[in-house]
């Protein structure tokens, strides 16, 4: 079962939260839905689940709008808000009401509670749960109908390291079973460890729909870090060769548009002392920042050595 969004748009008055978004989420892999906070991820997921109406465009799951599914918990499991339960009910009662609504047998309630590690607190009022336990309860609800499609909004929020590893393993195994797994996060590093594919948005617009490797390859800027007492001299030489140089401080430079051996040879040829020389690939986090950075942002130019050296 595939999730397909076409031209999905959501406007609140004059504010466009989601802007002409089109993407497909395929089965058998974990698709990360990535974007900074406020990029429109939750709004998009709410539209996928038929909770909010698109201003334009459409989104289907298995070829049909969400609302056309008769007993949707058998088709789609969703965690949209870990707080979306009544604190006065026990975990088991909350899940039992959900199970009844879709004709899911009662035993599934206990199975999913065991699966997410809440078996011992099934009878406790959910209002007293920690954030991590709330996330687990939300995931239990998503798993209730054993659905082929899972849509989880920021599932690692509030989980402890053990919980994060648990959910990573869970998501991968669900995808390995051939399910469609669509997980949002604002943490690139988390998605790098979990996702096979990425849908990246910023300000409601699609920025990338690509595999994790391609995403890093496309957006990475290989940098060379240099530490030298003759920073100004080296910066001048590198700039003369067409490289782009940024001064970190009086001794440290970050150079792009060249490579380590070129910098090393250039320094040796001009008898410049190098205290440190290292190649550094942009991390996923940096790739993400690079991609989502506002094009009107000029802060990167402020520390430029070219100007200072003149």
């Amino acid at each position: 079962m595939m999730i397909a969004a076409e031209g999905l748009t959501k406007k609140y008055g004059s504010v466009t939260a989601v802007d002409d978004l089109s993407f497909d989420v395929l089965p058998g892999r974990v698709t990360g839905f990535l974007g900074p906070n406020g990029a429109g991820k939750t709004t998009t997921l709410r539209m996928v689940l038929g909770l909010d109406a698109p201003t334009a465009g459409r989104v289907t799951i298995g070829g049909r709008p969400y609302g056309a599914h008769r007993r949707p918990l058998f088709e789609v499991g969703a965690l949209i808000d870990a707080q979306a339960f009544h604190g006065g009910r026990s975990a088991a009662q909350h899940l039992l009401a959900l199970a009844h609504s879709n004709g899911i047998p009662r035993r599934r309630v206990h199975e999913v509670l065991e699966q997410v590690g809440l078996g011992d607190v099934a009878g406790r009022r959910a209002g007293g749960f920690s954030l991590g336990m709330r996330q687990r309860l939300g995931i239990a609800a998503a798993l209730l109908g054993d659905p082929p499609v899972l849509i989880l909004d920021e599932p690692v929020n509030g989980l402890d390291p053990e919980g994060i590893v648990w959910i990573r393993t869970l998501l991968k195994s669900l995808a390995a079973e051939g399910r469609t797994v669509f997980v949002s996060s604002h943490l690139m590093s988390e998605m790098a460890q979990t996702a096979d594919h990425l849908v990246v948005i910023g300000r409601g617009r699609l920025l990338a729909d690509t595999s994790v490797e391609d995403f890093v390859g496309r957006t990475s800027r290989d940098e060379v870090r240099v530490v030298t007492p003759q920073a100004t001299e080296l910066a001048g030489l590198l700039t003369g060769q067409g490289a782009h140089v940024q001064a970190v401080d009086g001794q440290r430079l970050v150079v792009t548009g060249t490579d380590v051996s070129t910098v090393g040879r250039l320094a040796a040829a001009h008898r410049i002392v190098l205290l440190e020389l290292a190649a550094q690939s942009a991390s996923l986090e940096e790739s993400f920042m690079e991609l989502t950075r506002d094009s009107a942002d000029h802060t990167a130019d402020s520390g430029n050595v070219d100007g200072a050296a003149r």
């Binding site: 539209m47 038929g50 909770l51 909010d52 109406a53 698109p54 201003t55 334009a56 459409r58 709008p65 969400y66 609302g67 056309a68 008769r70 009544h86 006065g88 009910r89 026990s90 009662q93 039992l96 009401a97 959900l98 199970a99 009844h100 609504s101 879709n102 004709g103």
Partner: peptide, 30 residues
């Protein structure tokens, strides 16, 4: 926009015993 709104959620459906049981569970468990 109205068409989108109408399509987004299926407004009507049969009242199944399951939905009644769900609401009964919710009401009585508080």
């Amino acid at each position: 926009t109205t068409e989108h709104l109408q399509r987004m959620a299926a407004p009507t459906g049969a009242i199944t015993p399951g939905v009644l049981r769900a609401e009964w569970t919710k009401l009585t468990s508080l």
